[in-house]
Every structure is written in structure tokens, then in C-alpha cells.
Design a protein around this nucleic acid. Structure first.
Lengths: 145, 145
DNA sequence: TCTTTTGGTTATCAAATGATAAGTAATGGG
DNA sequence: CCCATTACTTATCATTTGATAACCAAAAGA
């Protein structure tokens, strides 16, 4: 097995993934939201409720900057902070109703483009894709190395 | 075949890919080079020789900004511009020797991390991965939809 | 030839992001 | 109870990036 060739293929593949996700998500970010803020909202949408520290760590943003962006997002009424009873230093973040609506709309658009992209594939092929993703996810892109 | 579930899996997968590529490439960008400049160099490295317009289009950077970043890169002696005989408006960009050396070093580091990541896998598993990437590349992440 | 288009440049400005220092309040461990 | 640590905030500054206008020269088309 030629590992070097596999690496080449891997690099080309990740490039394609970045390019395609760019295509799928472009223009879905609503007006007056910065890319960074959108990516934070995306993370909250998937993982809520989350703490500031979690956002900071997972998105690789320093705590001061995370705090700043989150203030802006709450000012825009897109998410809300809740105190957590057992540790009054922490705060749990959730999308607000309008924030949730916004992200639902965004995901709908992305989904529509995704379905368009796979529309011509047979059930067999879709199964193959599901299987391929499962393999890669578990063997190469798993978080714990 | 539940397309909705496949979409969920797809989203989680692309997130993992972004995360892993971040881990693989972090700290490989040499001092005094901005992220944007690094990504341009990466593109040149893979696709050289390229024109300014190609960089602009593929990396989604406006021509003025592409021109600016490229000027900085040539000032840093990391790439070189060549005139193209049959159309004197165009310029072909290539990595300079030191630019090539820099990118080789970066790719070596990334490769080392990649190999570490797959070191415990059997030949069978590696073949499976190769196959999985081939499937996804052709059916989902192909450029022409 | 005249005009339009293409490929690229320069200059300038605004906005987004990153980095750092300093501070508060709550928690937890001795 | 004291001290260190955690979670988060505020303020400030530098850098990076994005966006726009105005420009030049070569090429291509009528």
C-alpha cells in the first residue's frame, strides 16, 4: 500500500471538501452577520446548550474575543445566555427563537443544495456514500486520533 | 434511503474534515506569513504555474487584493512572476526556490501527522480508505456538481 | 481604426479578527 | 479562611482582510 499516494489523494480530497462546503454555504449567511459570527452560530445550533469556554475551545477563538462576539450576537437577539444553577460562573448559550429560525433557514438552503447535488444518484450509490463516510469518519477523521 | 439522515451525516463529516485539516496544518505556517498568504502559497504549490486571475477565482479573492498579497509574497521572495510570451498582459506565478523549500517543509510536517494518524491501520483498512475517498470524490465532491 | 474586454495595478478606506492586559466574581482545595 | 484557579468581561490596539474607485496596457472584435 503506497502511503504517499494515499496522502496525495487525501490532500486533494480535503481541498474538494473545503471547496464544496464553500459552495454549499455561500450566501446563506444573513445580512449583517460576519463569517466568524455565523460559524459560532452554526456551532451553537449543533451543540446547544454550550458554554463560552466550549465555543472558545472548539472554534479556536480566545475567550475575550469569544465574549465580544457573543455579546454582539445576543445584542442582535440571535442567542441567549442562561445562568447555570450549580456553578454561577458559567453561562449556557442557546439560540433564541429568531436565531433558531435563522439557522433553520440556512440549513434548509444548504440541504436543498446538497440534495440537488446527489439527486441523480441511485439508492445503491447513496448507500455506498453512507458507507464511505462512515469508514472515513471512524478511521481517519475521528476526533481522538 | 433516508436522505435527511445522509445530510446530517454529511454535515457532521464535513465538520470533522475541517477540524482534522486544522489540526494537521496548524503551526506549519512559517512566521511572518498570514493565513491568507499561506493558503495562496498552498494553491500555487499544487497548481503552478498559475495566473493572478486563477488565484483570484479559485481562492475567491478580488483581483486588487490578490495583486496586493502576491506583491507581498514576491517581496518576501517566496514566489516569482514570469511574463507569458503569447499574451503580454498575463503573468505566470511560480514558487521561488525558497518558497518551494518552505512549502515542501510544510507538506512534510502535514504528511508526518497524517501518517501518524493512520499508522495503526492495516493494509486492508488503508485500501478501504482509498476506496471510500475515491467514491466520495467522484460522487459527492466532484467540482462539476 | 476605434471600441470593448481582459489582466493586472495602485491607492485608499472600512470592517473583521487577533492579541494582550487587567479586572471581577465564583469555586475549590488545603 | 486563604489562595489558586476557573469562567468570563471590558478595554484597547495592531493586523489582516474585504471592498471600491480609478487607472494602464495589451488584446480582440467590429
Amino acid at each position: 500500500m503506497d502511503k504517499e499516494a494515499l496522502f496525495q489523494q487525501f490532500v486533494a480530497f480535503t481541498t474538494s471538501v473545503h471547496e464544496v462546503t464553500f459552495e454549499l454555504t455561500k450566501d446563506v449567511k444573513p445580512e449583517d452577520i460576519t463569517p466568524l459570527q455565523y460559524s459560532i452560530l452554526e456551532y451553537i445550533a449543533v451543540s446547544q446548550p454550550v458554554t463560552l469556554s466550549q465555543i472558545s475551545e472548539c472554534k479556536h477563538i480566545s475567550m475575550p474575543n469569544t465574549s465580544r462576539e457573543l455579546r454582539k450576537l445576543t445584542e442582535k437577539q440571535l442567542c441567549e445566555k442562561f445562568e447555570v444553577p450549580d456553578d454561577r460562573r458559567k453561562q449556557l448559550i442557546r439560540l433564541s427563537e429568531s436565531g433558531q429560525a435563522m439557522m433553520n433557514k440556512a440549513f434548509d438552503q444548504i440541504g436543498a443544495r446538497f440534495f440537488e447535488r446527489i439527486q441523480d444518484l441511485s439508492t445503491e450509490e447513496l448507500k455506498g456514500i453512507h458507507h464511505a463516510i462512515t469508514i472515513l469518519q471512524s478511521k481517519v477523521f475521528d476526533e481522538n486520533k
